[in-house]
Amino acid sequence: MDINMLNKKAVEVRIGIIEAIHNAGSGHPGGSLSSADITTALYFDIMNIDPKNPGMKGRDKCIFSKGHAGPAQLAAMALRGYFPIGEFTGTLRRIDSRFQGHPNIKIPGIEMSTGSLGQGFSAAGGMAMANKLDNDPGKIFAVLGDGELQEGLVWEAAMSAAHYKLDNLIAIVDHNGLQIDGRNDDVMTVNPIGEKFESFGWNYTVIDGHDMIAIHDALTMAKESKGKPMCIVAETIKGKGVSFMENQAGWHGKAPDDEQYARAMAELNAAKAALK
């Protein structure tokens, strides 16, 4: 793995997120930015995929169960070559665009339509079951939000994944600690996350979700998991990479105005230049 390249790609993913949400005039920058490093690692380091053949047999699949952070996934996919980045950043959330407000299965490479929390994770379990039936070596990576863990469906899915020994299913929880109405701890406590999954029959590990080496190591270990599904609790910062968005619940679902956009881009471009 090339750490410098991955870190640079992660900045480019963040630039794509900000471009697209600014152009759209709406969207969810906070949770997209917090999951940008995880997403970059999946698409540029870990997953066995072919953008030229999105339906490739035996491929790994990434399901953004926290569908509101879809711009992170779409930006990574565009940079990986699934579709032109300009089409994504220029038409996200616009009428007649294939780039909907939340991930849509009609886009080649998007494996599941998500947006209603918990459902992507549940479907990911079904995909892992199908791969077991077919002896398909592909792994299923489900990216969840921490607030999403308040959905009962998540725990139904977690229970069945352990019951059916879905060691080909990997859950990555983007634990940025914030949700629309404020801190998880104020709205509805989700901690301890790893221990909850463990008590449901999963393995888990906790990592710094912005440390590319830690992400690489955890995902590589998760791919080798035997007999149990694996949960990676990624400790992240909501809005990561844009100073004024960091750790602000208010940036969960709000687009930057022109002035804020310019500041965000200046910061991200500087970060990119520093990685040269």
């Binding site: 599941m112 549940s122 479907a123 079904g126 995909m127 791969n131 469906l153 899915a157 069945s160």
Partner: peptide, 11 residues
């Protein structure tokens, strides 16, 4: 939810 995942995988 899982039925959807199985079906989208070809079942």
């Amino acid at each position: 939810g899982a039925a959807a995942g199985l079906a989208i995988s070809g079942k």
